[in-house]
Amino acid sequence: MEYLKVFVVGGLLCVIGQIILDTTKLTPAHILLTFLISGVVLGAIGLYEPLVKFGEAGATVPISGFGYALSKGAIEGAKSNGIIGVFVGGLKATAGGISAAILFGYIMAIVSEPKTKS
């Protein structure tokens, strides 16, 4: 049941993205940004939280979950450390993923070669 909820929530978020992709001229990069900012905004006004409670990884793994984590971190930072916390909180909450992307990205770039599509 838990996995089913994750699957459905995550799948549906991606379907929304696919619909935007297929009906507009937007690129996947635009979709990433749209979802991210939606996550930040929905997180800020408290609408993303219930989706995370219900769908768990289905809501946190999509990039909108990254946006949610950023805004949640900034708000929590504001609560505990005021204005400094606002600047520190968002990145602190998401630092793991970003650092991993930089390090693994660099390593992969060194050890592998792009292949022509066939």
Binding site: L21, T27, P28, P114, K115, T116, K117
Partner: peptide, 18 residues
Amino acid sequence: HFSSAERQFRFPLEYGAQ
């Protein structure tokens, strides 16, 4: 050349776009 044009005009080869 497909691969030199692709990286100049579109996306990297390993980028997962449709």
